[in-house]
Amino acid sequence: MNGIVTVVGSLNLDRTIRVATHPKPGETVLGSGLTERPGGKGANQAVAAARAGAPVRMIGRVGDDPAGRRYRDALRHHDIDTSAVLLTPGHPTGTAHITVDDHGENTITVVPGANAALTPHDVTQAAAAIRTAAVLLLQLETPLPAVLQAAHLAAEAGVRIILNASPATTLPDELIQAADLLIVNEHESRFLPTTARSVCVTLGARGAQWGEDISRPPRVEAIDTTGAGDSFAGTLAAHLAAGTPAPDALQAAVRAAATATTWPGAQEGELPP
């Protein structure tokens, strides 16, 4: 097994504000600072997979702007193949606006930007990166037609498909049935039809469950839960691509998710200048 993980997904700049408590509707609160770090579910998961030791290829779009070029450079720093991360004239790099409270809990509003321009044609142009992977890792922050095309190419080639069905939405049966494994949180699991072949449910501070296997996280001092689920998905994909047995892969992913709560932002570190 080649161990390669190919990720089709989003790349965002995460703009994070820290607050004592989240504002209620109509309420104004003061934030304690503004930071800008790399994010986006697709890129977060790609970095997590690379950190777990997998060779990783990324397929997606960023803006044809300084932020987009810096982002591609940041991914290369993690040894991620960015040859299919396309610059997009007329669109800014996507952004996520994140508010984190003193307990480390967050709310997130995403402005897709260039992510919304990813097309099935873009995915087809990168078909070799999908067909020669051990695992294709997908999420739902890019247009569904592009996600479906990636799943179609992977299924034709016998590549294992992992779909992180987030953000929660109604999914076509063909995508549900193509996925070898669905990763969802407890809230998202309510949206899944019974046709799903295999489901792994993340349980926040209680760990995760995949079938009969349950893994509990180590105790950590959490400061920011942003990206913990992405660290879980990327790490799980990396271990499964390498042939790690499912219970061990699940345990490694839960540990990675817990560790990810101990640093600010979805990816450790910031974009290069």
Rank of each mutant, 00 (worst) to 15 (best):
I4Y: 08
I4C: 11
T6L: 11
V7N: 08
V8H: 09
G9L: 01
L11T: 13
D14Q: 02
D14E: 00
T16K: 08
H22K: 00
P23Q: 06
K24Q: 15
P25A: 08
E27V: 09
E27A: 08
S32P: 04
L34Q: 01
E36C: 11
R37T: 14
R37K: 13
P38M: 01
G39V: 04
K41R: 08
G42V: 07
A43T: 09
Q45V: 07
V47I: 15
A50N: 09
R51N: 13
I59F: 10
G63R: 05
D64W: 04
P66K: 08
A67F: 10
R69A: 14
R70A: 13
D73S: 14
A74G: 02
L75D: 00
R76L: 04
H77T: 15
H78V: 07
T82V: 15
T82P: 11
S83T: 15
L86Y: 10
L87G: 02
T88P: 04
G90N: 02
G90I: 04
T93M: 09
G94C: 06
T95H: 12
A96E: 05
T99V: 15
V100G: 04
V100I: 11
V100R: 00
G104H: 03
N106C: 01
N106L: 00
I108C: 06
T109H: 14
V111P: 05
G113R: 12
G113D: 09
N115V: 08
D122P: 03
Q125N: 14
Q125I: 06
A126Q: 11
A127V: 12
A128C: 06
I130N: 09
R131A: 04
A133R: 02
A133G: 09
V135P: 07
L137E: 11
Q139G: 07
E141V: 12
L144H: 01
L144F: 10
P145N: 06
P145I: 03
A151L: 03
E156V: 08
G158M: 00
V159T: 12
R160A: 15
I162E: 06
I162K: 10
L163Y: 00
L163C: 01
L163K: 02
A165F: 02
A168M: 08
T170R: 03
L171R: 03
L171I: 00
P172Y: 07
D173A: 14
E174C: 05
Q177E: 13
L181D: 04
E188K: 08
S189M: 05
S189A: 15
R190Q: 13
R190N: 09
F191D: 07
A196S: 02
L203W: 09
L203D: 05
A205F: 07
A205G: 02
A208V: 01
Q209I: 10
D213A: 14
P217E: 06
P218S: 12
P218V: 07
P218A: 11
A222S: 15
D224M: 00
G227V: 03
D230W: 03
S231H: 15
F232D: 13
A233R: 00
A237V: 10
A238H: 06
L240D: 12
L240N: 11
A241R: 03
A242C: 10
G243S: 07
P245A: 12
P247Y: 11
Q251N: 14
A252H: 15
V254K: 04
R255Q: 14
A256W: 03
A256F: 05
T262E: 00
W263Y: 15
W263K: 01
Q267S: 06
E268L: 12
L271M: 06
